[in-house]
Design a protein around this nucleic acid. Sequence first.
RNA 1: GGAGAGGUGACAGAGUGGUCGAAUGUGCAUGAUUGGAAAUCAUGUGUACUCGAAAGGGUACCGAGGGUUCGAAUCCCUCCCUCUCCGCCA
Length: 423
Amino acid sequence: MLDPKILRESPDLVRAAIARKHIPVDIDAVLAIDAEWRTRLQEAEGLRAAQKAANSAMAALPKGSPEFLAKVAEMKAVAARVKESEGQLKEHEERFRQSMLSLPNLPHASVPDGGGPADNVVAATHGDPAAAGPHAVAHWEIPGFERLFDFSRGAKVTGAGFPFYVGDAARIVRALVRFFLEENGRAGYGEVQPPILVNAASATATGQLPDKEGQMYETTVDRLYAVPTAEVPLTNFYRDEILEEDALPVNRCAYTPCFRREAGSYGKDVRGLNRLHQFDKVELLKWVHPASSYDELEKLRGDAERLLRLLGLPYRVLSMCGGDLGFAPAKKYDLEVWAAGQKRWLEVSSCSNFEAFQARRAQIRFRSKATGRPELVHTLNGSALAVPRVLAALLENNLQPDGRVRIPAALVPHFGADHLSFS
RNA sequence: GGAGAGGUGACAGAGUGGUCGAAUGUGCAUGAUUGGAAAUCAUGUGUACUCGAAAGGGUACCGAGGGUUCGAAUCCCUCCCUCUCCGCCA
């Protein structure tokens, strides 16, 4: 959520910034709703003040005295007006809140201009895609793939996009999760195991609701949502809390399965491990002082990159342009790993600075030592990393002529062998 | 799931219809005292919205939402959460 004061004082600035995201919004409509709401607020508060003043006067009168009874009669009419006025106020308040929730975050000045994926800027490349995977084929074409990654039985048991991981596949998934958690722990991210069902308030705070409702699985009772990313429960860890300034930055990481309906996806995007309805991911979360959030974004990106380096996978870093930034981030880097068999880049991490956008929705603040007053923190999060696509790249890039897959040295202690076999 | 008890400010805890944003204690901050500290004393100590150039007003908040009433922390209803006992259960 944006700061309503900024919207009131500099609507043109806000309009121009949101235009960079290529998201259509009607700022004037929001301003009109805001103005109407404030008029109603003044009216309702004035009536309440009159009522309270009368109450104080009545408290001093003897009960049942003529003066008292006269007051009661007089205030009955006021009470009716208060009720009506407050009812209307409530409607306008809700309308205002909804319109504010519908506004996307403003992009940072350093975000490149552009309308879509083609305009994203390559900020860094590591490793040589051309040299990777001399024996590569698309991972789903590796002989024996379906034995280890059993999509057929997954479809039978649940539906498309919910594979069983069997044998070495299960072990490599577990190894990757362990590797990510332990390396992130070493980098200073405290491990957390969060709930993987969240309530509507949590999903609203991070921006999934109301914007992306159809992307989440929802329970038919209790209105809980299966997390699309650990970002949701993790960010909400400190919802409605005030942290000590000295405690910042707080760095945490969490492993969760992630559930995404991915409505509307099709084609080669969804082949094999490229896009699943359930997948494993380790997420990093930072709660930081506003003054340092862009330094922290670079650190976050560096921490995610380090994992890809340790795995020896070629990757590139994209700075997302305004049109591809999405709703909540002010700035975002995507890390894409090279999948030598498919000959394409796969997104394995998004590292975002949300500035105060999520913090305002979630009311996550810190007590400023300078002013003694609460201020909103900035929140950042990044995947480190998404398991299936890293695995896809690993299978394709490290495939040997004998059909086995070489396990990177960093992963061997967790996997327990130096090759993965499909036979 | 059943029965019961409860949810008040940083914490503990009073308040069962009227001047209660809320006693008291602890904690915390500042000042006095001290060589320094402890102890003691004094003063202060929530958040949010809104009006205002400011000074300063106003309103809301006693788990959440609704209701009764001229007036609700206090009465009624619904929901959530915590605790105790029972049931069920990885």
